[in-house]
């Protein structure tokens, strides 16, 4: 199986260890992983700010980089959702549609395509799971607390395979952390307050680590945790699943 690895720009620039863990994890599971080196960004920062029409260049580049693969895998629910919902190209709509259908967020790729049932990883810590909204409500990686429906969670299903980990519960299982792309600066006060409240919920339940499938939310939470000089750390799920 050959998969194109799509690494969001902020992971590439600030959290390379998350991308490395994703790559190594997929290779361990027998996937031939190719990282098209000309990739940049999905265009979401522009689109969510209302400038979707400017994202043409990003879209064309994305199609050029990823059209050839059977699968595209990305360790971010938010960027995956953006491609799934908004990748278009007037001149090449067929290829755009094809990509929208074959892009997967990492955890859903592991549970739904690779059908992973065992993970050789250990993480002997108390961990709180942050359900990032775009992955959860957009890609439906986990059941949403608003709906009257049976619960499930793809990331939690994977975390439960990790040795020694204790998953803590939360008072609010899936409230937004307040990152929200440019919202984090345009609505700084509310954004930070939302982040502080999420962190307080995790800490109140004894979390040593806040784990998520979207590094953007974690970057925001990490920024607040560090300012608070907290010992609680953030980790991307790929780093844990790839850990020995």
């Amino acid at each position: 199986m050959r998969a194109g690895l799509f690494i969001p720009c902020y992971i590439d620039q600030f959290y390379p260890q998350v991308a490395i863990a994703t790559l190594q994890l997929l290779e361990k599971l027998g996937v031939e992983v190719v990282y098209p080196t000309n990739q940049t960004c999905c265009g979401q920062p522009m689109a969510n700010s209302g400038f979707e029409y400017l994202a043409k260049g990003c879209n064309e580049l994305f199609i050029k980089n990823f059209a050839e693969f059977e699968y595209i895998v990305c360790p971010s629910g938010s960027c995956t959702l953006h491609i799934k919902d908004h990748l278009h190209d007037e001149k090449n709509e067929h290829a755009a549609k094809d990509i929208r259908n074959k892009i997967y967020e990492l955890t859903e790729f592991l549970t739904d395509i690779l059908k992973v049932e065992k993970i050789n990883a250990s993480f002997p810590h108390k961990v709180g799971m942050h359900q990032s909204c775009h992955g959860q409500r957009g890609l439906k990686l986990s059941q949403m607390s608003e709906l009257v429906a049976a619960p499930f969670s793809k990331p939690l299903q994977l975390l439960k395979m990790v040795n020694g980990m204790e998953l803590i519960g939360l008072s609010r299982a899936d409230e937004c952390c307040g990152f929200g792309g440019t919202f984090c600066v345009s609505e700084e006060a509310v954004s930070v307050k939302m982040g502080k409240d999420r962190i307080a919920d995790h800490i109140a339940h004894g979390a040593e680590f806040i784990v998520g499938a979207d590094m953007s939310c974690l970057m925001h939470l990490e920024g607040i945790l560090k300012r608070q000089r907290s010992n609680v750390k953030v980790k991307h799920i790929a780093e844990i699943l790839n850990g020995e």
Binding site: D12, A19, T37, V192, G223, R227
Partner: peptide, 13 residues
């Protein structure tokens, strides 16, 4: 109200 992420030595690319 937030710290910056630390810039790593090299990007993933």
């Amino acid at each position: 109200q937030r710290e910056m992420p630390e810039a790593p030595k090299q990007s993933f690319g």
